[in-house]
Design a protein around this nucleic acid. Structure first.
Lengths: 109, 109
DNA sequence: CGGCATCCTTACTGATACTG
DNA sequence: CAGTATCAGTAAGGATGCCG
């Protein structure tokens, strides 16, 4: 997750390389979600890893963290404009990946 | 690098998530390269890691490995059709990443 | 020259318990 | 509820040497 790259592509790939980052962004596309909701959706993720990834995505300017000072506290996460743009790219990647998954592993070039 | 995903996006992200995968594809875009060439271009990569990544990219159907049976042997790597398609997506990601790198880390949403 | 085998180090991920 | 702290396991990455 360390990023000492000069290359923008590597930078973005690092942003979404975590085991769960893509899934988080993917889910936030459909509207804001609370911490607990995300944890339930991303079956198996631990609180530590989730908050860690959320923090990284926030630092990258891809998501926004909103604290609702109720008791007990609620925290909502949603995509920023940039997060939206990224999820559009993820859509394309999705198309591409779907084709790869259907076809043979090593097609003739 | 393990891939038990159902999601095509994760699948593709896994394909390019290695520390050097993107750089390898990026370089092969400009024509086929030999093992030694790649090792020189990707400053700091070890032979083990390079061959490991090349093998994974080959298994993914993104690059082609061609052995030239001279003495000593030569091996050339080049992109497949799919590798080309992927590099097109990488171009887009590059645009996006460049913007992220220029702008502030956390822009207002 | 290309690349596999071995060993070692580090980074990532996870389970659990505890706090505001 | 939404985290942080600590401890532990696993997997990726790297250094080096050997082989066809």
């Amino acid at each position: 997750m360390e990023n000492t790259n000069i290359c923008p592509v590597d930078y973005v790939v690092d942003l979404i390389s975590g085991k769960w980052k893509v899934l988080i962004i993917w889910n936030l596309k459909f509207g804001k979600k609370r911490f607990g909701q995300l944890q339930r959706i991303l079956t198996g993720i631990s609180k530590k890893v989730l908050s860690q990834h959320l923090k990284e995505l926030e630092n990258s300017g891809l998501i926004i963290r909103t604290v609702i000072p109720s008791i007990p506290v609620q925290v909502e996460y949603s995509l920023t404009e940039r997060g939206m743009e990224l999820s559009a790219i993820l859509e394309e990647i999705n198309q591409f990946g779907a084709i790869l998954l259907k076809g043979p592993t090593v097609p003739k070039s």
